[in-house]
Amino acid sequence: MYIRLLLLLGSFLLSYQSWGQGSFYGVKGGLTMATQQWNAFERDPLVGYHAILSVESVPAEGQFSLFAQMGYHLKGSAIRRSLFGNPFNASFVDFPTQRFEFHNLSLSLGAKQVITKVGNSNVYYLFGVRGDYTLTTNLDEYERFTQVNQISVGIYPFNVYFSENQIFGVRRFNYGFLAGGGLNFPFSEYVEGIVEFTVNPDFSLQYQQPSIDNVRNPINGQTTTLQERKIRNLTFEITVGARFLRKVEYID
């Protein structure tokens, strides 16, 4: 349903642009701080990156415009345990950072509103809706831990997992919204620079795992129930780039 909504909004945006006096085409990218909450247990942020191609209508009366953008975004979380106590002796074990990466392709549609001008620059806020498709993950790196009676299902997420005719794991399609603000400043009549900051929460789940009964603990031999797991993305992005004006002039 949300994919159809995005396509409908995209068609409207393209039609809107065709009535205007031109459009801006942009390329931008920057740093991403990705976070996830694993059933009320916070993981550490994952520092990543993103790259975006965008198209935007020329602002009506210099204030309001619509935009569409397609981009690659690295999402996920991390576990950082530089020192971990060894239960068998008094020493400490040094663990490398564990990264849980979700490489997503995002389509965003939204609007911008200029708040004020600072010299020749425009300060604006933006908001929109977003649909994501997960291209790949690095979760295969942790599948070696699943060979011991499935106990690590409760620790690490999986791409796909099968249990009693159930299939669960990474959800390829997700949706959410974006909100933020930025600044654009002219280099010339046809080229402008961009600096933006956005917050990008997901409404849907990046990963879902139902509870699993009768999982045997390889340490004590007892069975246990692994709790349901739901993982949702939230990212913060700092973006810089440039946009290029394609101007339409009407000649009688």
Rank of each mutant, 00 (worst) to 15 (best):
M1N: 02
L7N: 15
L9Y: 05
S11E: 09
F12P: 01
L13Y: 15
Y16A: 15
Q17H: 10
W19N: 15
W19T: 09
G20Y: 07
Q21L: 12
Y25V: 07
G26D: 04
V27K: 10
G30E: 03
L31Y: 08
T32I: 09
T35L: 03
Q36K: 14
Q37H: 06
Q37M: 05
F41W: 05
F41A: 14
D44P: 07
D44V: 05
P45R: 08
L46E: 04
G48D: 04
G48H: 02
H50M: 05
V55D: 03
S57Y: 12
V58S: 00
A60Q: 13
A60T: 06
E61M: 06
E61W: 11
Q63Y: 07
S65E: 00
S65L: 03
L66H: 09
Q69I: 13
S77F: 05
A78C: 04
L83T: 12
N86P: 05
P87M: 12
N89S: 13
S91Y: 05
V93E: 13
D94S: 15
F100M: 10
E101K: 09
N104T: 07
L105S: 13
L105Y: 14
L107M: 10
S108F: 08
S108A: 15
S108W: 03
K112G: 08
V118M: 11
V118I: 12
N122Y: 01
Y125A: 03
L126V: 05
V129S: 15
L135E: 12
L139G: 12
F145G: 08
F145R: 10
N149I: 00
I151P: 02
S152P: 02
V153P: 01
I155A: 14
Y156D: 04
P157C: 15
F158L: 14
F158N: 15
F158D: 08
Y161K: 13
Y161A: 14
F162Y: 12
F162S: 06
Q166G: 09
I167K: 14
I167S: 13
G169M: 06
G169W: 04
V170W: 01
V170H: 03
R171Y: 02
F173E: 09
Y175S: 14
G176A: 09
F177Q: 04
L183I: 09
N184Q: 03
F185P: 00
P186H: 06
P186R: 10
E189C: 01
V191E: 01
E192D: 07
G193D: 00
I194F: 12
F197Y: 03
T198A: 07
T198Y: 04
V199F: 11
P201Q: 13
L205F: 07
Q206I: 10
Q206V: 09
P210N: 03
V215G: 02
V215A: 01
N217H: 12
N220G: 06
R232I: 04
F236Q: 10
F236T: 00
E237S: 08
E237C: 13
I238V: 13
T239R: 02
V240Y: 00
G241F: 10
A242R: 05
L245S: 08
K247T: 07
E249K: 12
I251R: 14
